[in-house]
Amino acid sequence: MDPINFVILASILFAIGAAAVLLRRNAIIAFMGVELMLNAANLALVAFSRMHGEIDGQIMAFFVLTVAAAEVVVGLGIIIAVFRARQTISLDEPAELKG
């Protein structure tokens, strides 16, 4: 089976992640959607790396992994700060900023 099928799989996961970011009102779930998108990109990179017979795509996946981990730390830090302040993490609740 051609490795390009994994790129198709990655695209499907990417779309699911994007939908989660746009649809879910819970900040943590939306954030998990972003993580899924980054992982989909990683899968595509690794699949392409296999197709080109080079290691470069894998190396990029390593960088993405590191960056994603750092991003999670900052993101969850912000989410905790928001939660401490107002005891909810719904993206709808804070209606102070609209318009």
């Binding site: 695209s11 499907i12 990417f14 779309a15 699911i16 994007a18 939908a19 746009l22 649809l23």
Partner: peptide
């Protein structure tokens, strides 16, 4: 939203 996401997936 779901339709848009499905569209994006199908497009890719």
């Amino acid at each position: 939203g779901l339709l848009a996401a499905a569209g994006l997936g199908a497009f890719l």
